[in-house]
Amino acid sequence: MKLPKITLNDGGQTLLLIIVTLLFWYLGTNASENISKLGITTGFDFLSERAGYDISFSLIDYNQNDTYLKAYFVGVANTLLVSFLSIILATVIGFIIGVGRVSNNWVINRLCRAYVELIRNVPLVVQLVWWYALFLSLPAIRNSIQLGDNIYLSNRGLAIPHLSLGGWGGYVFIALLVSCCAAFVYRRAVIKKVQWVGFNPVLWPRLVAIIVSLPLIVFLFTLLTGNVDYSTPKLAGFNFQGGMIVIPELVALWIALSVYSASYIAEIVRGCIQSIAKGQHEAGKALGFNDSVIMWKLIVPQAIYPMVPQITSVYLNIIKNSSLGVVIGFMELVSSTGGTTLNNTGQAIECILIVMGTYCVFSLVISLLMNWYNSHVAVGK
């Protein structure tokens, strides 16, 4: 039996809009009255006040005399850093495990399956605490594990050489963004020309030159002005001097997010590869290609298109799950603005709104980029 189609006419839609508006008005008025009764001041003026708390790891210069607004930017930068690193590593691991899940090699297939079944069914917060405890159990600084020239691993973190651009790092990053946009515009212009003329130029050397040129010029200018400082970690007493120490909280959160999210990406990759018709593999065999070439040159390119929307959801979860850094004391967005700043100022509504709005912006940007890539792959498909 065919179900009747339920629709709202213009009058019904207007009524629904009025009801929703009245509901939000009632909730807002009620919250405002309760805040007034408690004597809590509202607004975002507190962002210009002195923060008064330290942050153990920061990509930008920060101390406790800076404002709550700068502490917010530090949290945003730390969230973006761990999310970006986790997305890259999770994608690499996920693709390798996913391809291994459809391998004809029994050992590789079973090992990849065991990885997926084990990691995916253990809560992320449990894995995070386990990785953090593992790093804390490493040797002390005086007995650090040397991984190479001027690289040391201890329970204080990973000590690595540090290159400081004397405040010019932001300009190099902006130059890199401008170069990437210029390379994208150039590529689109060449592709349009190819459609009319009919030749097929090799673009990647030109694109690499465009992307590298402007940041390299800014870096060389920084070098000439004497703002570049390079230091390596040296053991002095009970700590390292020079270089940079990547704290164990960051590494533990990075690895936990990557390993956990890779198990979901692996299943997405496996499912999309198996959705490709078997005739594609047989056609590759008939043309004399080996299994590796068939997989990476024929099957995987066709499977990418259905992968993108599902992997986008995993990327969004990585960004949101980075908030679990609060469990091990990593000062990301939730720990700084949604935690310490909220407790110090009492501006709960404002702090939570800032955190919610920031995560919303992150998610919308990632969705926009992935949807653009998905449409690009669809055109190629």
Rank of each mutant, 00 (worst) to 15 (best):
M1C: 09
P4M: 03
D10T: 11
T14Y: 01
L16A: 10
L17I: 05
I18C: 03
T21H: 06
L23Q: 05
Y26L: 15
L27F: 08
A31T: 02
I35C: 07
K37H: 14
K37R: 15
I40D: 00
T42I: 02
G43L: 02
F44D: 05
D45S: 11
D45C: 01
D45R: 15
S48Y: 13
D54L: 13
S56H: 11
S58G: 08
Y62V: 12
N65A: 09
A71K: 00
A71F: 07
T79R: 07
L85N: 05
L89D: 05
I96F: 14
V99L: 13
G100S: 08
V102K: 15
N104Q: 11
N104V: 01
N105K: 06
L111A: 10
L111I: 14
Y115N: 00
L118R: 01
L118Q: 02
N121E: 05
V122Q: 04
L124G: 06
V125A: 09
V129Y: 13
W131Q: 02
W131P: 00
F135W: 07
S137D: 06
L138Y: 01
A140P: 05
R142S: 08
R142T: 09
S144T: 11
Q146S: 14
Q146N: 05
G148V: 12
Y152W: 08
Y152H: 10
L153V: 07
S154L: 01
G157H: 10
G167T: 03
G169E: 06
V172Q: 00
L177K: 00
C181F: 11
C181D: 03
A182Y: 07
A183L: 13
F184C: 05
Y186W: 13
I191E: 06
V194Q: 06
V194Y: 00
Q195H: 07
V197C: 01
G198L: 09
F199E: 11
I211Y: 04
S213K: 04
P215G: 09
L216Q: 09
N227S: 12
Y230W: 14
T232I: 14
L235Q: 10
F240Q: 11
G242T: 06
G242C: 07
M244E: 15
I245C: 05
V251K: 01
L253H: 11
A256Q: 12
S258G: 02
V259A: 04
S261N: 15
I265P: 07
A266D: 11
E267Y: 10
R270E: 10
A277V: 00
K278A: 10
K278R: 09
Q280P: 04
G284A: 09
D291S: 12
M295P: 01
K297E: 15
I299P: 04
P301S: 12
I304L: 14
I304Q: 12
Y305A: 03
V314W: 11
N317W: 04
I319T: 13
N321T: 13
I328G: 12
M331L: 05
S336D: 04
T340L: 14
T340F: 10
T340P: 09
T341A: 12
T341H: 01
N344S: 10
N344C: 07
Q347L: 01
I352Y: 13
L353P: 04
G357F: 13
T358G: 02
C360N: 02
C360T: 14
V361S: 03
M370C: 14
W372F: 11
Y373P: 05
N374K: 08
V377G: 07
A378E: 15
V379K: 06
